[in-house]
Structures are given as structure tokens and as C-alpha cells.
């Protein structure tokens, strides 16, 4: 049994090395399956919980243009969660179990969504920076080895680009507006910059799973590589807005051909991951309330379906 498994594992690695995609019914190491269930489901939970900080401002958008954009974005996030739950389910876990893990706090979601959206400018900053960071990670993941995950990423990437543009347009409007509007935009950047950098996860040397993830082509680039990419792309975007990234150590390095940036407060990162961020409790409470208060809808749908089936069989019989 041992020997059989190690032969299978070697054959599996050869497929990965050859650039083959792994599909749900293919043999895979148990750790590959479990890693994907965890990663894909946490990605899905992030999309669903991510609807909350932005949903917060739907009733208070300054214009109709902003309202339709924000509604469409939040609706997309629900859809993205659904694509990812579907991908996770191909690996042998049920939707009910996935929700149970989220609602009981067993499963994590991206810690960025544990921060509050304090002002309208936050909606701009979130679209620009949080979706911007997500895009960098998700574009990389379109080349991930597990087929359903890669295909979900392709769909998501197509939809995500409007999310970032919507956020940037908000920032642009504010930065080109009154002094108070520009100050509000600067304040939002000040609060969302560092948490956005943390979205890429711990530094490579402190990320024990990275090596196996790269070997199995789950990750095609490391946390630090993606984080550097994000900084390099975003600094010029801040310059166009005319606001300052809150990092005194941010500086173009001619030799590296990348931006050097300052130290991240990893203590804050781990505290938020552990559940001590500003909104962790609130997010979980909101999700549980939505699930519990929506129980009647699920029950009604089922009752309706059963009633229709009965009526049909009476007619036919």
C-alpha cells in the first residue's frame, strides 16, 4: 500500500512537472486534495464576507452611477464565491459543511475584510487596492494546477477588472474634487495601504507551505514576488491621484528595478488572523444572521419544489 502510493505520488508529480492540469476524478495525494479544499473554500468565504464592508455603503453612494457600480460589484462577489464553492465541492466536501466551517469560525477568510469601511473614500480605496491586490494573486492562479480552480480564476479575473477601475474612478473623482474630498481619499489610502500588502500573506521565509505549493504548482509565484509586483504597479497609480502612500521608506531602487518598501507590522497581521481585528466578530455575526434569517427562504424553495413534483405526479398518474 505504501509502495503503491509512492509510485502514484511520483507519477502525479511527473504530471505536474509536465504542466498537466489535475481534474477532480484524477488520483491526487491526500494532502493536495486537503490543501485545495482549504484554499479554495477560504477563497470562497473571502468573496462572501467581502460583500459586507462594501455592502455597508450601497445605501449611501453619492450618485446613481456609484450605486449601480457598487451594487454590480457586490453582486459579482457573491457570484465569485459561488464559482469557488462549486470548485471546492468537486473535491468531495458539501456546501453545507463549507458554510458550517465559515459560520463556526473553523475556516478562515482573507483578513483584509476584517477592516471597516469608515468613509465613502474607503469604497474607492478598497476597489483600487484590495481588488488590485486580489487581481495580482488571481491572475497568477489562472495557471494553478487544479483545473476547476484555474477555470474559476479565469472567470473571476474577467469580472474583477471593472472592480478595480470602479474603485480607482472614485479615488480620481475625490482627488480632483475639493480639499476635503482629497483629504478623505488620502485618509482612506493611509488606512488601507498596509493591510493590502498583508493580503499577500507572510513573508516567504515565514511561510512553511510555500515550498510544497510551488512544487505542486498550486502557487505559481511566491507571496513576496506577488507583493513586490503589487507595489511596483500601484506606486505610479498613487502618483496620478496625487496622494501619498504612507511609507517613508518607499523608494525606487535602480539596481533592483523595483520599489523598496518599509517593514510590515506582522504583529498586526497575526492579531487580525487570530480574530482580534476591528471587525472579525461583526463579520461572523452578520454571516450567521444572514444564514439563520434566510432559513425560511431555503425551506420555502424546497416546499415549493416538492409541491410542484406532487402536482405533476397527480396529473400524470
Amino acid at each position: 500500500m505504501e509502495k503503491d502510493n509512492s509510485i502514484k505520488a511520483a507519477a502525479f508529480q511527473a504530471r505536474i512537472d509536465a504542466g498537466e492540469k489535475i481534474e477532480p476524478k484524477d488520483w491526487m495525494p491526500e494532502k493536495y486534495r486537503k490543501t485545495h479544499i482549504r484554499q479554495i473554500s477560504q477563497h470562497a468565504h473571502s468573496e462572501i464576507v467581502g460583500m459586507l464592508p462594501e455592502g455597508n455603503w450601497i445605501t449611501r453612494t453619492p450618485t446613481l452611477r456609484r450605486k449601480v457600480g457598487l451594487l454590480a460589484k457586490v453582486q459579482d462577489e457573491a457570484g465569485h464565491g459561488l464559482y469557488l464553492y462549486s470548485a471546492a465541492e468537486t473535491l468531495g466536501i458539501s456546501r453545507d459543511e463549507l458554510f458550517h466551517q465559515l459560520h463556526t469560525g473553523k475556516a478562515k477568510y482573507s483578513s483584509i475584510f476584517n477592516y471597516p469601511t469608515m468613509s465613502w473614500a474607503d469604497i474607492g480605496a478598497v476597489g483600487w487596492l484590495v481588488d488590485g491586490a486580489a487581481i495580482i494573486n488571481q491572475v497568477m492562479l489562472t495557471r494553478t494546477s487544479f483545473g476547476p480552480y484555474a477555470r474559476a480564476m479565469v472567470r473571476i479575473c474577467k469580472e474583477e477588472s471593472f472592480h478595480q477601475r470602479q474603485g480607482y474612478e472614485i479615488m480620481l473623482t475625490l482627488c480632483q474634487g475639493s480639499a476635503e474630498q482629497k483629504a478623505m481619499a488620502q485618509d482612506a489610502l493611509n488606512r488601507w495601504w498596509w493591510p493590502s500588502l498583508m493580503m499577500f500573506g507572510p513573508r516567504d521565509e515565514e511561510s512553511p507551505n510555500t515550498e510544497q505549493s510551488v512544487k505542486w504548482k498550486i502557487k505559481r509565484k511566491t507571496n513576496d514576488e506577488l507583493r513586490q509586483q503589487f507595489v511596483d504597479i500601484t506606486v505610479p497609480q498613487a502618483e496620478v491621484l496625487g496622494i501619498t502612500i504612507p511609507d517613508p521608506d518607499l523608494k525606487w531602487n535602480e539596481e533592483r528595478q523595483h520599489y523598496d518598501f518599509g517593514p510590515i507590522d506582522w504583529e498586526e497581521f497575526w492579531q487580525v488572523v487570530k480574530g482580534n481585528g476591528p471587525c472579525n466578530k461583526e463579520r461572523l455575526k452578520a454571516r450567521n444572521a444572514a444564514w439563520n434569517n434566510g432559513a425560511w427562504v431555503r425551506a420555502a424553495a424546497q416546499a415549493h419544489a416538492e409541491k410542484k413534483t406532487k402536482e405533476l405526479s397527480v396529473k400524470v398518474g
Binding site: Q75, D76, S86, R95, A301, H304, A305, T309
Partner: peptide, 23 residues
């Protein structure tokens, strides 16, 4: 294009329209 959960065919169709053809 993917999958979804629904109680019957009509709801599956409407959910598919909402999730997979927004654009």
C-alpha cells in the same frame, strides 16, 4: 461552465442565469 445548488429545474435555470450570464 460550473455548477450550483437548487431545489428544482426552474430555480436551477434562474440561478444559472443570475450566476453565469451577468454579462
Amino acid at each position: 461552465v460550473g455548477s450550483l445548488h437548487a431545489a428544482d429545474a426552474t430555480m436551477a435555470m434562474e440561478n444559472a442565469r443570475d450566476v453565469y450570464t451577468r454579462r
